Computed example of a mutant assay.
Amino acid sequence: MPIWQAILLGFLEGLTEFLPVSSTGHLLLAGHFLGFESPAKTFEVQIQLGAILAVVVVYFGRLWQMLLALPSDPWVRRFVISLFVAFLPAAVFGALLHGFIKDVLFENPVLVCAMLIAGGFVLLAVDRWLAPTPRFADAMDIPPARALAIGFFQCLALMPGVSRSGATIVGGLLMGAERRAAAEFSFLLALPTMSGAFAYDLYVNWNKIEQTDVLPLGVGFVMAFLTAVVVVKLALAFIARHGFTPFAWWRIVVGSIGLAALTIYG
């Protein structure tokens, strides 16, 4: 794999992982048109670790304070429970459907484009019209029962092109979270969800990673980390000001261009 491709795909991963536009969809389409094919799509999954570490770095102070307060603060304990129950549905269904997702769904760029477009219209509708009056201004206020519902929304993202962050943000909005709170809950939920996906995929596909893959993986990892740090720092302020409509149109435009390119070039 040329290093420039690793840089490009790492940049795409970091840019899109925490935005509701589907990082996996962007990576699969880019790989398709570049003619890049990693064994069992390991590259696309493994460079997500860089994006995971970006959240750890940006939120380190808050995460450390939560860890220290966990034994004594019931508010923090409830939030940790909320994250755990939100993580469980995707963990269970992701493990059960791992082979089907990687071998069938990941190999269908038309499906990816369709999900990008459909998800764009859903995000547009929820952001503008369907979301109820917000009840939770802070991600840590979301109770476990509503967090579980958000977790089931996250399962929709097992289909490439849907977007993990997009599904959880839509779920958060429908469960009464304010825009910023829904996005921040999605960021923090990414830690157990993406770490679990990374670890499970590494366990299943360890024997498919060759020595020649190490350098591109490392380059993609670093690029994803650096880009995601910038995105996570800037995203909440942008969302608070502009909402999710720009990302909805981003999805629709990328999906439409992808379908046109697939029709013309195959």
Results as ranks from 00 to 15, higher is better:
residue 15 L to H: 04
residue 41 K to Q: 10
residue 16 T to F: 10
residue 23 S to Y: 05
residue 34 L to H: 10
residue 40 A to K: 13
residue 25 G to C: 10
residue 36 F to G: 04
residue 23 S to R: 14
residue 29 L to Y: 02
residue 43 F to T: 04
residue 21 V to G: 06
residue 20 P to A: 08
residue 42 T to N: 12
residue 25 G to M: 11
residue 30 A to Y: 00
residue 43 F to I: 08
residue 18 F to R: 00
residue 18 F to N: 11
residue 43 F to D: 06
residue 24 T to D: 15
residue 33 F to Q: 13
residue 20 P to F: 12
residue 43 F to Q: 01
residue 35 G to S: 09
residue 20 P to I: 04
residue 24 T to L: 14
residue 14 G to E: 14
residue 41 K to A: 13
residue 43 F to V: 07
residue 35 G to H: 04
residue 17 E to M: 12
residue 17 E to K: 05
residue 32 H to S: 00
residue 34 L to Y: 13
residue 15 L to Y: 12
residue 32 H to Q: 02
residue 43 F to P: 05
residue 27 L to E: 12
residue 33 F to V: 08
residue 42 T to Y: 15
residue 41 K to Y: 13
residue 37 E to M: 03
residue 39 P to R: 03
residue 27 L to V: 01
residue 32 H to K: 07
residue 42 T to F: 15
residue 40 A to G: 00
residue 40 A to E: 14
residue 29 L to M: 11
residue 36 F to L: 14
residue 28 L to A: 12
residue 16 T to A: 15
residue 31 G to I: 03
residue 36 F to D: 11
residue 36 F to E: 15
residue 18 F to I: 11
residue 42 T to W: 13
residue 24 T to Q: 15
residue 43 F to K: 06
residue 35 G to L: 08
residue 15 L to T: 05
residue 38 S to Q: 13
residue 30 A to H: 01
residue 21 V to F: 04
residue 41 K to N: 13
residue 21 V to L: 07
residue 32 H to E: 14
residue 18 F to G: 03
residue 19 L to G: 02
residue 37 E to F: 02
residue 23 S to W: 05
residue 25 G to R: 06
residue 14 G to H: 10
residue 21 V to R: 06
residue 25 G to T: 10
